[in-house]
Design a protein around this nucleic acid. Structure first.
Lengths: 141, 141
DNA sequence: TATAAACCTGACTAAAATAGTCAAGTATCA
DNA sequence: TGATACTTGACTATTTTAGTCAGGTTTATA
């Protein structure tokens, strides 16, 4: 059970962006350098973020990206959703809800995995980008 | 971010075992048939569970496995630990705690991943095998 | 004591997912 | 008109997962 680096990078990049986007758009090149993430990979990630309207792009020289909403209105769940980072505990979700592949005896633990998914997703729904930026500036020396 | 089937199967198998082990040891063959998990794979999993003293084996004809402790003393975290199902959010754990690969600016989000790990692990520490068995018998029609 | 049931171990592998790289653009500002 | 920066899609090496397979050993019971 692990987080993919795509999800992790997306959050890191957005925290970085949120800290610097007060005045000008932030270029991916800057984020790449500051966060040590490959530029090509960042482009892939921001393409998804843009499609989900989490960021806006500004083209041309001095261009870059800006947040499309207030930091406090961007939750982790929005970010993970955008880059396809999902919490998956069981395969049997798509099937009929009761049956679990037809055999009702099979999923003794189905309830458990649902609870677990909810538990994790709740965490993601509560945390906003603003929380992360604040938390970070407070920890600053 | 997903649960591996090894972790999932381990829990499923142990819930099954916990329900049937009152009198006789439960054979993997029975669990395999009831839960639809390959016998070979179950053996792999139970080998790990036995090493961590979660179950005991009984050899010979009529042999099988029994729980090594009370169901309420077996937590999900013990099971996942036994089969190497770990919650991993970042790679930078093994390095020096502060540095995060040396660059202190890098991990703007380090705190977050720690929180997330704790959040998930707390869930695993609270849930016991007994909870699952109870939950299941209550849902029974 | 033979034998079958069941445990035990380790090596092997196909398939899927991940974590990127690479190439070839297009748009816009200075 | 050139430099900067976004945009897109295809491609690939590596790693992980989810098992299978083969060849044992142990022990209850007939």
């Amino acid at each position: 059970m692990k987080l993919t680096s795509k999800g992790r990078y997306a959050v890191m990049a957005l925290v970085d962006l949120a800290r610097f986007d007060n005045i000008n758009p932030v270029s991916l090149r800057d984020i790449s350098l500051r966060q040590g993430i490959s530029l090509d990979y960042l482009e892939q990630i921001f393409s998804k973020l843009r499609k989900k309207e989490i960021v806006q792009s500004v083209r041309g020289t001095q261009g870059g990206y800006v947040l499309n909403r207030k930091a406090k209105d961007i939750k982790l769940t929005n970010i993970f959703d955008a880059v396809d980072e999902k919490v998956k505990t069981v395969q049997c979700k798509k099937e009929s809800k009761k049956g679990c592949n037809g055999k009702s005896t099979k999923c003794l633990t189905h309830n458990l995995w649902d609870e677990l998914e909810n538990h994790i997703n709740n965490f993601f729904k509560e945390k906003s980008l603003e929380d992360l930026v604040k938390d970070n500036s407070e920890r600053r020396l």
